[in-house]
Amino acid sequence: MTDLARTHPVIDTHCHLDFDDFAPERDLIVERARAAGVVRMITICTRVRRFDRIRAVAEAHADVFCSVGTHPGNAGEEPDITAAEIVELARHPKCVAIGEAGLDFHYPDNAPRDVQLAVFRANIEASRITQLPLVIHSRDADADMIAILEEETGKGAFPFILHCFSAGPELAAIGVKLGGHVSFSGILTFKNSLELREIAASVPRDRLLVETDAPYLAPMPYRGKRNEPSYVVNTARVLGETIGVGETEIRDITTANAYRLFSKMTRP
Rank of each mutant, 00 (worst) to 15 (best):
G69I: 12
I81T: 14
A101P: 01
L17R: 09
H8A: 11
V10W: 09
R50G: 00
V57H: 01
G76S: 15
H61I: 00
G37I: 11
R40W: 04
D21E: 15
G73V: 09
M41P: 05
D12L: 05
R26Y: 10
D80S: 12
R47N: 04
P24F: 11
D12G: 03
N74E: 15
A83N: 09
A23F: 11
A75H: 08
I98N: 04
I11D: 09
V38K: 12
E100K: 02
V30W: 02
K94Q: 00
E31T: 01
P79D: 08
E85C: 06
P24C: 12
I86L: 15
P72I: 07
R53G: 07
E78T: 08
T82M: 06
H14Q: 14
D63L: 03
V68C: 14
A84I: 04
S67F: 06
R91F: 08
F51P: 02
V39I: 14
R55F: 00
G69Q: 14
A60C: 02
E31D: 15
A23H: 13
I81L: 14
R91H: 13
E85M: 07
A33K: 01
E78G: 07
D18W: 12
L89V: 12
A75P: 05
A62G: 08
E25N: 15
A84D: 15
D27M: 02
E77T: 10
A97V: 10
G99T: 07
A75T: 08
A35S: 04
R6N: 11
A5L: 11
F22N: 13
V39G: 12
G69M: 13
G73H: 14
R55N: 05
L17N: 10
V39R: 12
R40G: 04
E25W: 09
T7Y: 12
S67I: 06
A33L: 03
R91Q: 14
V68K: 05
A101I: 01
R40L: 04
E59M: 06
